Computed example of a mutant assay.
Amino acid sequence: MRTRLSRALPAAVAVLAVFSALPVSAATAAVREPVPYASPVDHPSYIVTVRRDLDPADVARLVGVTPVHVFDTALHGFAARLNPAQVAALAALPGVETIEEDGTASAG
């Protein structure tokens, strides 16, 4: 059965009136501010890139690391908290391309 516009329009207007009467603060009250990332004090976080023919998670496991994140789109590698010995061990592996301490980047 088809609903006539003359019957549906008053109901739609009533629903819109209820939502438009809500205060803006009620709609945004549950939104929390993002918490900035802070790397642990004991080991800094690094981003490690590896050759495309290697599995980044396998490379991390070779030095006893559990990746925080594995990248496979723009970068091919992983992010992990590394101690100095793990950084040195990764640097010695032939398939590791870069090891960069994680930080903030800005343009210009």
Rank of each mutant, 00 (worst) to 15 (best):
L16A: 15
A30N: 01
H43G: 04
V96G: 12
P44T: 06
P10V: 06
G95F: 08
T49H: 03
A27E: 08
R52H: 08
G64N: 00
S45R: 12
T73L: 13
I99E: 02
A26Y: 03
A30T: 09
R2I: 13
G95M: 14
V15W: 06
V18H: 05
L54Y: 00
L16G: 07
A30P: 06
V15I: 11
A80R: 14
V35S: 14
L93H: 07
P40T: 10
V31A: 03
A74L: 08
L16S: 04
R7H: 04
L75S: 06
V68F: 13
D58G: 04
A30E: 13
V63A: 07
P67S: 00
A30S: 00
V68Y: 09
G95C: 02
L75G: 00
A107Y: 10
D72P: 01
A80S: 06
V13E: 05
A14V: 05
Y37D: 10
A89K: 09
L90Y: 04
V63H: 04
E97F: 09
S45C: 12
P94S: 02
A14N: 12
A29T: 08
L82F: 08
L93A: 05
P84C: 14
A80V: 10
A91P: 03
A30H: 09
R7M: 08
A60Q: 05
L54S: 01
S6K: 02
P67F: 10
V68M: 13
H76S: 04
S45W: 11
A89Y: 10
D53Q: 13
V50A: 09
T73E: 11
P36W: 00
G95E: 14
A29Y: 07
F19G: 14
V65L: 14
F19P: 00
F78Q: 05
A21H: 02
P34S: 10
F71P: 00
L93T: 01
R52L: 01
R7K: 14
R61M: 13
S39M: 11
D55P: 04
V13R: 08
F71I: 02
L16W: 07
S45K: 10
D72W: 12
L93E: 03
V70N: 06
E97N: 07
L90S: 07
V68W: 13
A14Q: 13
V59E: 05
R81L: 15
T28M: 07
V13Y: 03
L22S: 07
S106R: 15
T98L: 10
G103L: 12
D58P: 02
D58F: 15
P94R: 04
